[in-house]
Design a protein around this nucleic acid. Structure first.
Lengths: 127, 127
DNA sequence: CAATTCAGTTACCAATGGAAAGTAGGCACC
DNA sequence: GGTGCCTACTTTCCATTGGTAACTGAATTG
């Protein structure tokens, strides 16, 4: 059991609740954020390029993340039927807008990087 | 092996790289985002209240998420030595600033909810 | 003395994610 | 004409993560 539901029997439509949560879970995903960033920086990119640009991602997670983003309309996938295969990925306007929405978070991370490092070490030292 | 490293031998200090990635992984975490939101909305809150306000979280993940956020200096944990136990959680200014940085993302999610739903169904129908 | 309350642990098990090898299919090389 | 390479994936296997639910401790209440 997670937690007993909040005592006031949820004011919001549970279907909307579920959708928002699902969306948050999707959008807040580490790999989605990272792929989004490299596509904003790099424009139209191919599978392998994206993989190289996202540090630590596996091919499995890359395909999975790209498919999800395509399904949500964040990017388009264009297959050129040649050999060897050539597939282009490009952000849609929706994907771009999400990237812009995340700008604040990137800036926050850069700004407070050092402060967090220090805080962590202090915390670990006291335990 | 994930992917071969980018051919130009990483221009950035790998330690900074690692830190940024770690931070993104932390901050982009679903539960962190959700806990952050309820604490912004609710101010100082106790363990059980937060659990009720975050739909679907387990006690295990709640303690884990709260500990991480404390370690990163996003919130403070105050124990009142009484029985039954009473523990207060409150965002720090750092936590608040992260919440503000995320505002754009929340708005984006609300704004584009329906559009994404439609896009998904179209995608699923064509497969 | 039994039940309740809060803020957690703990034990167990299912699902997720990573590493590496395999696949398709045409082309270049020897 | 067989060997190997190229790209964009799948697939398999295994370690780690995360969820479920039961348990803990200590004082107060009935």
């Amino acid at each position: 059991m997670p937690f007993p539901a909040a005592t006031p029997p949820d004011v919001l439509d549970p279907r909307i609740e579920a959708l928002v949560n699902d969306l948050i879970g999707r959008v807040a995903d580490k790999w989605t954020m990272l792929v989004l960033e490299v596509l904003i920086a790099g424009g139209i990119m191919r599978f392998t390029r994206i993989g190289e640009a996202v540090p630590g991602i596996s091919q499995k997670m890359l395909t999975q993340t790209l498919r999800q983003m395509e399904r949500d309309g964040l990017l388009t996938r264009t297959v050129h039927p040649v050999v060897p295969p050539h597939v282009d990925y490009a952000l849609t306007d929706l994907g771009m807008s999400l990237g812009e929405a995340f700008c604040g978070v990137w800036e926050w991370a850069e700004t407070h990087l050092e402060r967090i490092e220090a805080t962590r070490q202090a915390f670990d030292a006291r335990k």
